[in-house]
Design a protein around this nucleic acid. Sequence first.
DNA 1: CGCAGCGCCTGAAGGC
DNA 2: TGCCTTCAGGCGCTGC
Length: 268
Amino acid sequence: MVPELPEVETIRRQLAPLLVGRSVREAWGHPSPKFAAASEIVGSSVTGVDRRGKYLLVNLEDGRQLVLHLGMTGRVAIVPLSSPIDEDPYVRAWWAFEDGEVLVFNDVRRFGRLAVVRSGEYQGIPTLAAMGPEPLSPGFDGRILWEFSRRSSQRIKTQLLSQRPVAGVGNIYADEALFRAGVNPAVRRLSRARAELLADAIKDVLAAAVERGGTTLRDYRSLEGIGGNQFHLQCYGRGGLPCLRCGVILRSRVIDGRTTTSCPSCQS
DNA sequence: CGCAGCGCCTGAAGGC
DNA sequence: TGCCTTCAGGCGCTGC
């Protein structure tokens, strides 16, 4: 639904070859402080596109980065300059390149945002500055989750969504990983053994979703269309339906403001 | 410093 | 059919 790590990574892979080497000739940002910085990179050229958690990092030749967060409903697209960009009321920013194509950032609900920073200087973007390790990197393992949970008073699901123990996990993949690891989303501490199970589940769930091009539910679209992971969800969105492992009816409830689905038996 | 609470947004879906 | 309410939710900000 919402772009989480697999969806942002899918977009990054599609966007990178389309942007690298191009120079911004003209740009516009919605006057809201969330988007207004778009025009600061006129004259800069793109050297690469990276990702940290759910943030897209567009590297510029002048040592700065355009940081994009898609929020819930954000989308990016590359379109010809001749397209009717102004007719879409939800375009929040665009960047026109020398060669006549335009990167468009569309976001109906304006939960997304963008920033232009000196490369790696994220003090103005608190979640990015405090971001935990990339889950598909060697720097992430069960010990990280175990130690974080020892120091935290929050429920494990809320810890994951904070982006601090691990990067890029949102509501869909938190529910999926907790289900597959057999961990109750409401617990506040993890045993070392359960932390290992949860770390492995996070890696498995995210890696599989990246391979499938992300999960397409309501809002997410990659540049090239839709992902395929929605057909492989075992827990998210299945409240009231039988657990695929044990048959007990899955329970949906709100934990710290987030709809959460879990198995009362497998995740006890 | 950690964390709870709140506000931001608007289309979709559900109730009557 | 149409109006009203509720829901979706990532993250920044504020204040304890």
